[in-house]
């Protein structure tokens, strides 16, 4: 029968495969139990202090670069990481505001420059925000430009700030 020799050679091949697998398993077990020693023996290379320092700095720079590329990414006018609108002084706003609170506290609010100033004053008076120095004006410029009140609703408030208050002189009853 022509099948006979084929069946034997198949059996032989299977046996070889089993021995091979057995060998691999033994080597792997050996590596797992003694790997550390082998590794230490083969990979150990003596670095000078200068070489180590240079290596560390290279890696640090690489890490920061990749992180900042991602960090500064702007899509459709929005800073992806914070959700803030791209614009002048965005970097100052991110560094001054978002280290303490979510950028959402900005993006969900709308106020005039004076209104944003009041919020900064409140944070300074009650929330431990430090003096912002020369950054304050820049932060307010950014907020007033990008998060100004929008005219919503069916009727706006009277523009009380624009009203010129005057004393009405009335005759008679006083």
């Amino acid at each position: 029968m022509p099948q006979q020799p084929d069946e034997y050679s198949l059996l032989n091949a299977l046996m070889s495969l089993i021995y091979l697998l057995l060998g691999v398993i033994i080597i792997a077990l050996g590596y797992l139990t003694m790997g550390d020693m082998i590794d230490w023996q083969t990979a150990q290379k003596r670095y000078t202090h200068e070489e180590l320092q240079a290596l560390t700095e290279d890696r640090k720079a690489l890490r920061e670069q990749s992180r900042s590329e991602e960090w500064d990414r702007i899509e459709n006018g929005i800073h992806v990481n914070t959700g803030l609108k791209a614009g002048k002084h965005l970097d100052i706003v991110i560094s001054s505001c978002t280290s303490c609170h979510s950028a959402k506290l900005i993006t969900q609010n709308r106020a005039s420059r004076a209104g944003w100033k009041q919020m900064i004053d409140w944070m300074q008076e009650t929330q431990g925000l430090q003096d912002l120095g020369r950054s304050e004006g820049k932060i307010l410029d950014y907020l007033a430009a990008h998060y100004a009140p929008t005219h919503v609703g069916r009727r706006q408030n009277l523009d009380v700030d624009a009203i010129k208050w005057y004393v009405l002189e009335l005759e008679g009853d006083e």
Partner: peptide, 8 residues
């Protein structure tokens, strides 16, 4: 914008 007194 008129301001008046309460008595008026």
């Amino acid at each position: 914008g008129a301001t008046i007194k309460l008595s008026q």
